[in-house]
Design a protein around this nucleic acid. Structure first.
Lengths: 247, 247
DNA sequence: AAGACTTATTGTATTTGTTACAATTAGTGT
DNA sequence: ACACTAATTGTAACAAATACAATAAGTCTT
């Protein structure tokens, strides 16, 4: 990517009523920040890195960094996450863009927030590049965060609660074969809300894409639960139908 | 706003594994694009401008432009809309950010899309700055648009349908005193879906913030309808309760 | 092997919401 | 007074949500 073309420059210089020099438009940058929620045994956490560089050196922050000039935004989210935490293969969704003028102390940087939810035991984040540490923090008690990252986490949490209502986001989190109790605990934790056991499974039974297997738990000291799995094909059919089930 | 500080530059130069010169990060810019939906008599339209400048000169496009270096994103959406269409006092919501590397032919520009819905008769857009014309286009038959604006319109339309389900966005569109038929027509148009008359009003009756007035229509050649209005206080109470009504 | 224990699973009665459609009402226009 | 138009109310069938209770299927203890 080269400097802005002449046509671009001249348009702005010609027409901008405030006569801001063209170069000032190109002194801004954009970043991505990843809000990785981690679920494990009824606990919801968020993955933070310790910043090993200024500004906010030593602070906990979301994994995030500037986007390369010739890098798509979505790709940047994956790359930045990998650079700082060594995590790959995590699919994130765009949540919101934060652009307050003074949100970055060293220049104009707007940031696009991305979010995902994973099972904590499935991944092993490792600090790299300028991250000096990584750690899962309970969503309920966050430390002081760098930049406006607290606001970003809050916004991402609201968004993921919304997604959870109509997307099977548990599919990325629960084991391939899971019990309805595990599924219920997941919903209860993410939505921070209790459900009646009997009614919960009645609702799940209306979802054809949660398929009962002919298997049950082993080695539990109580009645073993039937196992279920996500049926991708049935889910596709469901999505193409017009009946939407929500929580 | 000045050039990026030394600390900022040095961090990147030091740590970036690909050794991209710092200046390249600052050759990008960001813009906002406004998707203004207009409603009038069961018609849903979108406000486009004719571009009087390159690139895409002569094309229809969303009102949008670069964000000033010291301007908040949300403020930029208002300002850009005013600059190009002379419209003020339109509150927009952020929808999504589009950042494909090649989406702008003359440089790296990511754009943050904002949307709103208004009553077409309430406003009078007038082309100014580099916009050579403005026009309401039916949402159903859009011309070829500049950049990736077709995709942005589609995304904003999806978003506004979602908002319509749980936010009283009709409050910005319908007259202060309106009939339930008008309200139903609004929902039917926006959601592109028909409702049963009797059932629709039963649902509305459960919404305490749609308040029946002791007034009715005048000068209609049929039974006059009762008039209703939005009750802001009741809506506030409703929002603070936990029962959400949706369409 | 019987009974205790724990969680899974099914059932049921009540209430609440959805749907489709019919009947009635209150105006204007002839 | 009667036709016309759209507003408004009613109703019966059906579906979904809710609160609980009852039963089932394992392991564990004695």
């Amino acid at each position: 990517m080269t400097a802005p073309s002449k046509a671009f420059r001249s348009r702005i210089q010609q027409d901008d009523i405030y006569s801001i020099p063209i170069d000032d438009f190109f002194k801004s940058a954009f970043s991505v920040d990843c809000v990785i929620f981690g679920y494990h045994e009824k606990q919801l956490k968020v993955l933070l890195i310790e910043r090993g560089t200024e500004p906010y050196g030593g602070y906990w922050a979301l994994p995030g960094d500037l986007v390369y000039p010739s890098e798509d935004l979505d790709a940047a989210a994956s790359r930045v996450l990998r650079d700082l935490t060594s995590l790959s293969d995590i699919t994130t969704r765009q949540i919101h863009t934060f652009g307050k003028v003074d949100r970055h102390p060293l220049g104009r940087v707007i940031t696009v927030a991305y979010a995902a939810i994973v099972e904590i035991q499935d991944i092993r984040p490792q600090a790299s590049s300028w991250a000096s540490d990584t750690k899962w923090h309970s969503i309920k008690r966050l430390p002081k965060l760098a930049f406006d990252h607290k606001e970003i986490v809050r916004s991402a949490y609201d968004a993921i609660k919304e997604y959870a209502r109509y997307e099977p986001i548990w599919n990325e989190v629960l084991p391939k074969k899971f019990t309805l109790t595990q599924l219920q605990e997941f919903y209860e934790t993410v939505l921070n809300k209790a459900f009646d056991k009997g009614n919960f499974r009645k609702k799940i039974n209306t979802m054809k894409f949660v398929k009962a297997l002919n298997e049950s738990q082993k080695n539990v000291n109580h009645r073993p639960s039937a196992l279920y799995s996500f049926d991708a094909k049935a889910f596709k059919d469901y999505r193409e139908s017009d009946t939407l089930i929500e929580f």
